[in-house]
């Protein structure tokens, strides 16, 4: 089928005179062209070949693109990450869910990070998020995302935030946030145009929350 690739789509009426002699069998279909064996390819066979070949090429290019950034070893770094000020720590009850209590902490934080090295030609966006990690009597590990940002351009990838407020409150279903040692970690998820997703993180910083509700 590969030899159909060079023929132009509307070459259907052209019949090569040198080959027409040995190809007059009964399955000749009007609107077809001759191939080397003297048999004919119908329009549909050619369409099928072109579409199939097109998809194969696109798929190969996509795979090559995914592999092309394989050695890109620079992911950016975080220079500063810490809690600036605790604003609230209290026990709350979720209105919609009867009997569901949790501890809620609100704070703002400072962040200095340069994630621009993470960008290469196959990165569509970085999903940057701040995780609070801690353990409690109920849970051996709790991870809560309290802030996130989508970065689509390399120019926006230098973060310098002071007293940035949380996007989501830190809520602990184990109701154990008082006097809790929490760890802050910045993680960024590399989201490619095509290929595999992967995450990197840098610089952890821990803080102990106060032992009294505010």
């Amino acid at each position: 089928m590969a030899e159909t690739g060079r023929e132009t789509p509307n070459a259907g009426m052209e019949v090569s005179p040198s080959r027409s002699g040995n190809a007059t069998d009964s399955d000749s279909v009007p609107g077809a062209v001759w191939n080397r064996k003297g048999k004919m390819h119908t329009f549909w066979v050619r369409l099928n070949a072109v579409v199939f070949f097109g998809f194969t090429v696109l798929l190969c290019l996509a795979v090559l693109t995914a592999f092309s950034t394989y050695g890109h070893g620079d992911y950016g770094s975080v220079q500063q990450l810490n809690v600036n000020k605790l604003i609230q720590l209290r026990r709350v009850r979720d209105n919609g869910q009867t009997g569901y209590h949790y501890d809620q902490a609100l704070f703002n934080f400072d962040l200095k990070a340069d994630l621009s090295p993470a960008f290469d030609w196959n990165i569509k966006q970085l999903f940057v998020f701040l995780v609070v990690e801690y353990e409690s009597k109920k849970n051996v590990l709790s991870q809560v995302v309290v802030w996130d940002r989508i970065i689509e351009r390399k120019e926006d990838a230098v973060l310098d935030l002071e007293a940035e407020f949380l996007d989501y409150p830190l809520r602990d279903p184990a109701v154990e946030l008082r006097n809790k040692n929490i760890t802050l970690r910045l993680v960024w998820d590399h989201m490619p145009l095509t290929g595999t997703l992967f995450m990197r993180s840098d610089l952890v910083n821990s803080t102990i929350l106060p032992d009294q509700y505010t």
């Binding site: 849970n139 051996v140 590990l141 709790s142 991870q143 809560v144 995302v145 989501y168 279903p173």
Partner: peptide, 10 residues
């Protein structure tokens, strides 16, 4: 969707 909270039991 993306996972935003994980609480892992013993």
């Amino acid at each position: 969707h993306r996972v935003l909270e994980v609480h892992q039991k013993e």
